[in-house]
Simulated assay, not measured.
Amino acid sequence: MKKALLEVNGLKTYYPVGSKSLLGRQQHFVKAVDDVSFTIYEGETFGLVGESGCGKSTTGRSILRLTEPTDGEVLFQGENLAALSEREMQAKRRDLQIIFQDPFASLNPRMTIGQILEEPLLVHGVKSKTERQRRVSELLEVVGLHRYHADRYAHEFSGGQRQRIGIARALALKPKLVVADEPVSALDVSIQSQVINLMQDLQKQFQLTYLFIAHDLSVVRHICNRVGVMYLGRIVEQGECDKLYENPLHPYTQALLSAVPIPDPSQQRERIILQGDVPSPVNPPVGCAFHPRCPHAMDVCRTTRPDFREAHEGQLVACHLY
């Protein structure tokens, strides 16, 4: 039986906007993450997909408490990360790491690559300089770089090499869970495949578990075991990757998959064009958040938020059609 490594229950992350009321209460919030729940099992890759601004990256950052969540539970190996003090959370960060979307912005331009990779080791108690330098050399070789690269700065590398450095930094403390926040979206297509293959090789080598955040659905299908589809801060569909891609249930998932290019020009796919714009997360629609754009919207969709339930074996959906 699969063992759960991470359980997210009712996660909410709201950002206050605008002025307060006469009583000093905050009146308006951007509901970036609004009641998100999912489980990630040891050794798997769980994908989180959706349009830009749907709350994918905020979900990943809230799990790691790089952004403080407003409400909900984040259970890592049974312990609620949201309830830990800063000191207790720092100790947990050995097991929880992140690969950032922009490899250049996430690397300090004033530090050499060796210093960047040494820093987490120093923070977490590896006092011996010899041991730190040995570990830096190991990390560089593991991600396909050379030991002499340790003396160079971030601007001296290509985008693909910088992302490899970001991956090496994430692996420095031998974590159990890595949040990969759109790790290949800033890279050329040819480099994307190299980085994806590297991540898969490292997953097998170090028994890693990934939360893989992306908007490129073809990349997600290649690397992920299960996937959750987000819309306006909520997960609308979740299931095993192959089942979800072959038989998408939610109208939003169907529209997303219809936009994925097919490499064979002789094949045709009916494109689903969504009408209207994504509603504001400050004032999301009542009922189902997708109903203003849904071609199958019913009266109940405008008044009642659908429950997240199992429609088929291993495939959950939040939609009144099921």
Rank of each mutant, 00 (worst) to 15 (best):
P306E: 00
G24H: 06
P281Y: 04
Q315G: 07
V278A: 09
L145N: 00
R162Y: 05
P306I: 02
G78Y: 02
D95R: 11
K3D: 13
D34C: 08
F76N: 02
L6R: 03
L211G: 02
S137I: 13
A172T: 04
P292F: 06
D264H: 09
Q203L: 06
T13Y: 01
F104N: 13
Q26A: 11
K31S: 09
A318W: 00
M199W: 08
D151R: 15
T58N: 09
R271I: 13
Y245E: 01
D201I: 13
P281R: 01
L202V: 10
D277R: 14
E51C: 07
E310A: 02
T39M: 10
R226P: 00
A82G: 10
P261R: 07
I272H: 09
L257W: 03
S21A: 11
C301V: 00
V227Y: 02
V33D: 02
R61I: 11
D188V: 09
Q161K: 10
F100K: 02
V178R: 03
Q133E: 13
G276P: 04
D95P: 07
Y153C: 05
N9G: 10
V17E: 06
P248I: 03
D307K: 15
V143K: 00
G166Y: 05
A91L: 14
N247W: 11
S158W: 10
D188I: 11
A83W: 12
G60A: 08
G228W: 02
S57Q: 07
I116N: 05
N197R: 12
R134W: 11
Q194H: 14
I63A: 08
G60H: 04
V136L: 00
S190I: 08
Q268K: 15
G24D: 08
R234A: 11
E79A: 13
S258G: 07
L122D: 14
F46I: 05
S21C: 08
P109K: 03
L6Y: 00
